[in-house]
Nucleic acid binder design. Structure first.
Length: 563
DNA sequence: GCCGTTTTCGGCCCGACTGTTTTCAGTCG
């Protein structure tokens, strides 16, 4: 698993070094493409018979990959890394500095890393380079400072509310007729680099001005007639594009991306003797809506979440992605009995409010002492109370469950006799999240194969930007989950989103069930479902793949599949 | 470096903005 990640990093690095060295641009993008292909693979690339069967990976890269999987070394990579000072790669991350500048910094004034770049600014050497005026140097200084404090991309759970707030504000500006967000946010990615906002207005300069003067703008990065760019106090960059109302669709398509989707779409246009850009499709002159542009290219409208050039151009019309309204149960929630903030009754009422037919109480098991995990006797008493409350509450089924720890050796935190008393068992890894792939996979397989386990909760245990989590052998996990009818959870919490998009795709492709839960501890946590759904859609999930979309009786039957 | 119902060679997406320049290179998305 981590071989793919390691290799992807190496190909990214090779691409960057080639760029600094001024190599052929297509060779550079070919390397980036290989890196991306590796990042998106769930099976270990070393297991493949023919690596070149993957689109974007040709003979040359396949040979390099093979050399690495066999020997742990890649000759071409090592040679490239040796050919430049390693600190130059860090300089490439400074906004406003590209490959050409890095090359000149290195060759002409001996700058080899961020530190020597800072020194060159202080002692005035930077000024000696062509096109290095006071303003440019000031921007570079600020970018270096910004880079030091903001290394991570922003979680969608942070970015989406900010974007909504900005749009609600900008909507009120006179002349604005249409406004929405695009980019990776619209594609529902788990982390966002910057917020892209697209707008139509009768007064362009007013909108641009007001945008740059918004309260939380820390710095204006660019301010043109049709494009403005600012950085917020929160650290996020926000780009505003102002476009003609009747070209909104073309612009939305273009700025939603992904870049790879756009490139393939444009190549498709060219092959049909057409030309596509952000202003429309010529010669047919179509630009108003995305639907019309796709239709003219003989394609159905493609949902933003799957616009990654991962096969969406041949997706069948009947492949209708899951939506939030398909969800009619939440099977992983906590109460005050462990570390939640709702009572069983409150949870039941919440479920009814959301229109669910079923909600599950799944408090932590005894191993989670810090989360006030339940010991067997407390759990037995809780099961009784849940059943009592369930009897008295009309309109919803409250399941007695547990989020039982999968201990490091793969055994569960409660014995079978107790587990048998539960309506639903969510088994999750919480500790020992540093385990190696083989051990971690064996651990989860044991839980998947356990006849009393219904769902594997947040299978990898990762926390976005904070903790890598278990690097599982996903194909084996999915195969076992399909065989034993155990669902794999997509935990909707925006800190987790675990399974991640590519894992979701593997799960659905492998005919295993997905469970999309919120893991709610507070009433407002139920809102996190939107992030789970976006991630599920990115993984091409349909309602048929997800147990939370089952009707009441169907779910009951599934819960009793091993009874 | 990759790819091919036009092609095994010759292409490979395209435009806006900045800062510096005095017509455009570099960067970004």
């Amino acid at each position: 698993m981590s071989t793919n990640t390691d290799l992807a990093k190496m190909f990214h690095t090779m691409a960057t070094i080639l760029e600094i060295k001024g190599e052929n641009a297509f060779k550079i993008s070919a390397n980036t493409k290989v890196a991306r292909a590796l990042e998106d693979m769930v099976e270990d690339v070393g297991e493949l018979d023919d690596i070149t069967s993957i689109s974007g990976i040709g003979k040359s890269s396949a040979k390099k990959i093979q050399q690495y999987t066999k020997t742990g070394k890649m000759y071409d990579y090592d040679e490239l890394v040796k050919s430049i000072p390693s600190g130059l790669l860090d300089i490439m991350n400074v906004q406003g500095i590209g490959a050409k500048t890095v090359r000149r910094l290195w060759k002409e004034i001996d700058v080899v890393d961020i530190q020597t770049l800072k020194e060159a600014i202080t002692d005035g050497r930077l000024e000696s380079l062509p096109r290095m005026g006071a303003k440019t140097i000031q921007n570079i200084s600020e970018s270096i400072e910004f880079l030091a404090s903001n290394a991570d991309r922003t979680r969608i759970g942070i970015a989406l509310p900010i974007a909504s707030r900005l749009i609600n504000h900008l909507k009120t500006i006179k002349g604005v007729t249409k406004i929405t967000f695009a980019g990776s946010l619209r594609r529902g990615m788990e982390t966002i680099g910057d917020i892209d906002i697209l707008a139509s207005t009768s007064d362009e300069s007013l909108l641009a001005k007001q945008f740059c003067e918004m309260q939380d703008v820390e710095k204006i990065l660019a301010q043109g007639k049709t494009k403005c760019s600012v950085r917020l106090n929160a650290g996020m960059q926000v780009d505003l594009r102002i476009v003609d109302k009747d070209k909104f669709g073309a612009a939305l398509l273009y700025f939603t991306g992904s870049k790879e989707h756009n490139i393939t779409l444009r190549e498709r246009a060219i092959s049909q003797k057409k030309k596509l850009n952000e202003y429309g499709l010529s010669p047919s002159n179509i630009s108003c809506t995305e639907e019309a542009i796709y239709a003219d290219l003989e394609l159905p409208w493609i949902p933003p979440e799957i616009r990654e050039d991962h096969g969406e151009f041949s997706v069948s019309k009947s492949h209708s992605l899951i939506t939030i309204s398909d969800i009619c149960s939440d099977l992983h929630c906590h109460t005050t009995a462990s570390d939640g903030h709702m009572s069983i009754e409150e949870l039941g009422k919440m479920g009814m409010q959301l229109g669910y037919h079923t909600i599950a109480v799944t408090d932590h098991s005894q191993a989670q002492g810090q989360a006030n995990g339940l010991k067997p006797d407390r759990l037995r008493r809780q099961i009784d109370s849940i059943h009592e409350i369930n009897e008295s509450m009309q309109g919803i089924t409250i399941l007695a469950g547990s989020e039982v720890d999968i201990l490091p050796d793969g055994t569960l935190d409660f014995d079978d006799e107790l587990l048998e008393m539960l309506d639903i068992v969510v088994a999750s890894p919480h500790a020992a999240l540093q385990q190696k792939t083989a051990e971690a996979t064996k651990r989860l397989l044991a839980a998947i194969e356990h006849p009393l386990v219904h769902i594997i909760g947040h299978p990898t245990g990762r926390i976005i930007n904070k903790r890598k989590g278990l690097e599982l052998d996903i194909p084996s996990i999915v195969a076992a989950a399909a065989e034993h009818q155990t669902a794999l959870e997509l935990n909707s919490n925006s800190h987790r989103l675990d399974l991640r998009d590519t894992h979701v795709r593997a799960t659905c492709d492998g005919n295993a069930f997905l469970a999309i839960n919120t893991d709610s501890h507070h009433p407002e946590d139920f809102d996190q479902l939107q992030f789970g759904i976006l991630t599920a859609r990115r993984g091409w999930a349909t309602p048929r793949d997800c147990i939370n979309c089952m009707k009441h009786d169907e779910l009951q039957t599934w819960l009793c599949r091993n009874c």
